[in-house]
């Protein structure tokens, strides 16, 4: 009895679009909320290192004298803590996931100060 019900479902599925996507060929759809990766608008950043102190996985390092801000994208757990804690609102969560990599490297941003060009961490 039950097999015929499932048989009907299976037969119907033959004429429908597949429920899955051919992932690398067809781009995945992200929603506005999707937590992918953290980017920092380094010129707006005041290097206060609140994000580094709040981070549960200690993924962020801030060096105030050296004017650098760095994140380990593979240690980041996309928990939004730093985005909420940031007093300058310069951290944002992108829907794009971190690109796969063969090495675990910190992504380092250097604050130049005074320049108009904005460095965005999304670029590898």
């Amino acid at each position: 009895m039950g097999s015929f019900v499932l048989g009907g479902v299976t037969f119907g599925n033959l004429f429908k679009k597949p429920a899955t996507k051919m992932y690398p060929v067809v781009a995945p759809t992200y929603t506005a909320m999707t937590k992918g990766s953290i980017v920092n608008d380094i010129e707006a950043c005041s290097l206060c290192s609140i994000c580094a102190k709040k981070c549960p996985s200690l993924a962020i390092n801030v060096d105030k004298p050296g004017k650098t801000w760095e994140i380990d994208p593979f240690a980041c757990i996309q928990c939004y803590t730093c985005v909420r804690a940031c007093p300058k609102d310069c951290l944002t969560m992108l829907a794009q996931y971190t690109a796969p990599s063969t090495t675990k490297e910190y992504k380092t941003l250097v604050k130049t100060g005074g320049d108009d060009e904005k460095a965005v961490a999304a670029a590898e």
Partner: peptide
């Protein structure tokens, strides 16, 4: 609707 078809299979199918 789809879920009720599944449960029908799950709970009435002879092999299960």
């Amino acid at each position: 609707n789809e879920y009720s078809k599944l449960t029908k299979t799950f709970l009435n199918d002879g092999s299960v």
